[in-house]
């Protein structure tokens, strides 16, 4: 069941990552169009504002994919010197701390969106973008990251308790470091 959960999470996050990439490519295309239009003496206007929103949303939604790909950098000095059980303890501890921190970030992001909703805030730019429009997907991204983190932690915990250390290390270990290279 744990493996199935991890598989589902990986699949979903891969899909999300591809969508983010498409949004990034679209953003590059808009920037490019603006550069060309400027040479022709006109302008789309507001491309850097849009780039900012894209960056914020892409960042929050991409975090979960990177987590499952073991992409968030960790230092392996002590952990690499311990055995199977030691590594599992390090990994579970790191995952619990990460999940807690990310949850706090997600919870603290809500007041930002709430105030934009309450004030009907619009960006201080000619586009007058309603901030809630772009902060909602940004906020949802952090919620998603927190959910992915806790579910991954739970799945890894089950694997460790079952003694399946190799599988748990695949899910929450350190990538590209001493012990995988050895």
């Amino acid at each position: 069941m744990a493996q199935k959960l991890l598989g589902t999470l990986r699949g979903l996050n891969k899909l999300v990552a591809i969508l983010i990439g498409i949004v990034l490519l679209a953003c590059a295309a808009i920037v490019l169009a603006d550069i060309v239009l400027r040479q022709l003496g006109s302008s789309l206007g507001g491309t850097d504002e849009i780039s900012g929103y894209v960056m914020a949303i892409a960042t929050s939604w991409g975090m979960g994919y990177t987590l499952l790909e073991l992409g968030h950098v960790r230092i392996d000095i002590l952990r690499g010197r311990t055995g199977n059980v030691g590594r599992a303890v390090f990994d579970l501890f790191a995952m619990a701390v990460l999940s807690g921190t990310v949850t706090l970030i997600a919870l603290q992001s809500w007041p930002v969106l709430a105030r934009s909703l309450a004030n009907g805030s619009r960006a201080n730019t000619p586009l007058e973008t309603p901030l809630a429009l772009v902060q909602t997907p940004w906020f949802a991204g952090w919620i998603w990251f927190a959910a992915v983190a806790w579910l991954t932690f739970a799945a890894a915990l089950i694997l460790v308790l079952r003694g399946e250390f190799r599988q748990s290390e695949e899910a929450i270990g350190c990538f590209g470091e001493e012990e995988t290279a050895r």
């Binding site: 850097d48 730019t125 000619p126």
Partner: peptide, 16 residues
């Protein structure tokens, strides 16, 4: 925002 809108009203083109 108001400066940018003003410039647009004067026929200029706002660039960020």
């Amino acid at each position: 925002r108001m400066t940018a809108k003003f410039l647009e009203a004067l026929g200029a083109e706002g660039v960020n």
